[in-house]
Structure formats: C-alpha cells, structure tokens
Nucleic acid binder design. Structure first.
Length: 336
DNA sequence: AATTTCTGCAACCGCTCTAAA
DNA sequence: GTTTAGAGCGGTTGCAGAAAT
C-alpha cells in the first residue's frame, strides 16, 4: 500500500478542546512513561484521542515550562527579525525562544505582528511618497534598513546565546531566557481567556500536583535517564536545556542552530562545564531532549549556524565587507 | 440589552522527513 | 531499494470571548 495510513481511524476519536480529565490522564501517563511513542498513548490511556492530538496537546500546552501570552518587546523583535531571516519556519524560530511553542509564535505572528508590520509599512511608504522620495530611494533605504536589521538580528541572537553579556541592542529579558532565574512559574503568565483550555492556572495546578507527588524517576528503558521535577521551579530551569524535537528532524542547517543553543545553554559562558552541570545534563536534559540523540553529542562544539553562513554568504555576494567583518569579529567570541 | 462583527488561539489537517523493518 | 510507522512542521479552521453597533 502506498502512502501513509492515517495516524488513527476517525471512528470514535474525539476532537475539539481537551478537558481537565483528559489532561490529567495524559500527564499521568507521561509521568509514568515519559514522552514519546505517541501511537500507543491512546490505547494505553483509554483516551479517545488520536496519537497526534496527544502529542500536540503535550508539546503545545501541557509540557512544563511553556510561557504563554504576554510577548515581551524583546521576544517580539526576535520573532520579527527571525521571521525576516528564516521565513515562516516557526519551529526554527521557536528554537531561539525556548519557552515558546512554534504554534504560539505562529499565532502571534498571524494575529499581531503581520498586521503591525503591514500597518507600519504602508504608513511609512505613504509618508515618504508625500515627502517626495522615489521608489529607488526607498529601496536603497530599505536595503540599508535590512542590513541593519540583519545586524541587529544577529546581535540579538548572540545576546540570546550569551546570557551574561550586557545587551546593547535589545535588552535581554532575563525572565525569558535566563538559566538562573527560577522564580518564574508557568501559571504566572497572564492570560485573558477564562476557558479551561486557555487557563494556565489550571494546567499549572495540575502540574504542580503532579510534580508534588512525583518521585524522582529514572527511566531505564529509554536512551537516557530522566528525573521528574519535584519542584515546579525546576521546570523553568529544565526548559532552558530542552532540545525541541524540531531540531532533530530537519536536515538543513538552520535547525542545527538550536543544537548549538542547547549546547551553549548547558555550558558556562567561558566554554567550560562544571561537574554539577554534568550531573544536570544527565538528570535534567534527558526527560525532554530528543530521545534519539545522545547527550554528549549535543554538548559538542558549537558550529557556525546556517543562519550565520547565510548572512556571511549574502554579505559577501553584495560586497558588504563591513557586515562580514562585523560577523567575523563577533565570531571570535567563545560563542562562535 | 440584543445582535453582529472581530479577534485570538487551540486544535486539526495534510504533508514531509526519518528511521527501522 | 521499498514500505511503513512515528514524529514533526506549517497552513488553516472553528469556536469562544471581546468589541462594536
């Protein structure tokens, strides 16, 4: 038989918003077995959902450490610049914002940023035409602006990767990316909707209960060991060392960047790794990391990302030596 | 207050990619 | 080399709540 079979037959499969009961069942199951092997989740849990739906619910909503709503200015700028550079590759973009899901970023782009940019664009164009600027003049300005934007995007990425460096362009929101900050809880993110599905409080409560009763768990059946968090705050620390599944499935270089990010986040800024960090690598990363990828492989030297190569190539092609120099200078830092 | 329109977001759908048999 | 299952990605839809009339 050619082609793929559906992940489940649609007979008897429930669709639509998840109920608290379903969430509890799913979370309990993942508590017991760890994420993965989604195909078996519905049959093992009795959930009348298809495996895909279970995975989606977990990765986009139930997974601990997810930050929802209230995008910061910094995050917004990151998304705008990354979208300009990477296009609608939401998973790749999301990998630079570890607490955000691709779905969340995609929604935010479609509902807020696209309109905002359109408005800005038309507004500035009309204004300039009125001021007597020609199209070519505008194009030149636009190109310079784009160069600046690329520079700024790169700077932002560097800063996102180098958490202890003071920011010059976009002040890094430490609450967004810091490894040290363990005060944020998922349920502290404001959310307007009152429905169950939109209530992070409900989920957080669910998870806190789960975590409170969850013993440290060592999975010997998976490729690594993992521990469940006994403290909700650990979730936030944990997520910063998370490797999104997205990074493992793509063959192009753009998504090799997240591996580098994860590696960096696992290491001290001077490139060394403490003994404690080593312990954390095995006890913390394991739960959410790509199960198929060895931990040490992730902690290797950070390669040039596709993004950076693209920037260099593009700059070289257009004779933008200043951009190249800027980029190369910045690569002398331990980060690159 | 009732109705209509708009908005935001969770979830679904269809597709691709990867790895294993 | 081919087939198949599992997983992930991006586009789209549908619904609930908010805002406007």
């Amino acid at each position: 038989m050619m082609g793929r079979q559906p992940c489940c037959d649609n007979v008897g499969v429930k669709k639509g918003p998840w109920t608290p009961e379903e969430d509890i069942i799913l979370v309990s199951y993942i508590q017991e077995r760890g994420p993965g092997n989604w195909r078996s989740v519905p049959s093992n849990t009795g959930l009348l959902r298809c495996s895909k739906s279970c995975r989606l619910r977990w990765t986009n909503y139930l997974r601990p450490g997810i930050k929802r709503g209230n995008f910061t200015d910094h995050e917004e700028k990151m998304i705008i610049h990354l979208q300009a550079l990477l296009g609608n590759r939401w998973a790749a973009i999301a990998s630079y914002l570890p607490q955000r899901t691709d779905n969340d970023i995609k929604n935010y782009w479609n509902t807020h940023l696209k309109k905002k940019l359109k408005k800005d664009q038309s507004g500035s164009c009309e204004g300039n035409e009125q001021d007597g600027y020609s199209c070519s003049q505008l194009k030149g300005q636009w190109e310079r602006r784009l160069q600046t934007d690329i520079h700024m995007a790169k700077q932002a990425l560097c800063e996102a990767l180098s958490l202890d460096k003071p920011s010059t362009h976009f002040p890094i929101d430490k609450n967004t990316l810091s490894l040290e900050n363990n005060k944020i809880k998922p349920n502290q993110q404001g959310i307007a909707s009152g429905t169950y599905a939109s209530s992070t409080e409900n989920i957080s409560r669910l998870l806190e209960n789960w975590m409170a009763k969850a013993p440290k768990y060592v999975d010997t059946t998976n490729s690594g060991t993992f521990s469940l968090f006994s403290n909700p705050n650990d979730v936030v620390n944990m997520v910063t060392t998370t490797t999104r599944g997205a990074s493992s499935s793509c063959s192009d270089g753009a998504q090799s960047a997240p591996d580098g990010l994860d590696s960096l986040l696992s290491f001290n800024s001077d490139g060394s790794q403490s003994a404690d960090d080593n312990t954390n690598l095995t006890t913390e990363i394991g739960f959410f990391q790509d199960e198929s990828k060895p931990i040490l492989e992730q902690a290797g030297p950070v390669p040039f990302t596709f993004l950076e190569k693209w920037l260099f190539d593009d700059a070289a092609a257009h004779g933008h030596e200043d951009l190249i120099n800027m980029s190369l200078n910045e690569t002398t830092s331990p980060l690159f």
